[in-house]
């Protein structure tokens, strides 16, 4: 049976930042793919990982869990994880899970990149 996952992930290094840009929905099937890209970002040893969620239409808790896992890795590695570009629907799940204050969240990629 096909897994039906349609997530595409951009990956780019810009100076001190690694920018991970998923595109599509991050649900149960896609969370594994997303996790692979986040792990790759951590493996790069860049001091800042920016996850640009501007092209993510929908996320559920398996997707959020991969970001929580990534945050834990960041804390262990003493690096920064910054989320940006969330639409209202995606931000709502962070609010419901009360994770909106746990993550460093910026409105846009430009804001995240400019953060010291």
């Amino acid at each position: 049976m096909p897994d039906g996952q349609t997530l595409q992930v951009g990956f780019e290094t810009q100076g001190q930042n690694v920018i991970v840009s998923p595109q599509g929905e991050i649900g149960y099937s896609e969370a594994t793919v997303f996790r692979t890209w986040l792990r790759k970002a951590h493996d790069s040893k860049s001091p800042r990982i920016i996850v640009d969620l501007a092209k993510v239409d929908y996320m559920n808790t398996p997707g959020v869990a991969t970001l929580v896992e990534s945050l834990q890795i960041s804390k262990r590695n003493k690096t920064r994880l910054i989320l940006c570009g969330m639409n209202e629907k995606v931000f709502a799940i962070f609010k419901i899970a009360r994770l909106d204050t746990v993550f460093e969240i910026c409105p846009t990629l430009a804001d995240a990149s400019a953060k010291a």
Partner: peptide, 18 residues
């Protein structure tokens, strides 16, 4: 428990919250 920030276990919380 939400103060315990870790992956997983969020689905039931979301259902009950919503």
């Amino acid at each position: 428990e939400l103060h315990d920030v870790k992956p997983g276990g969020l689905g039931v919380h979301v259902i009950k919250e919503v």
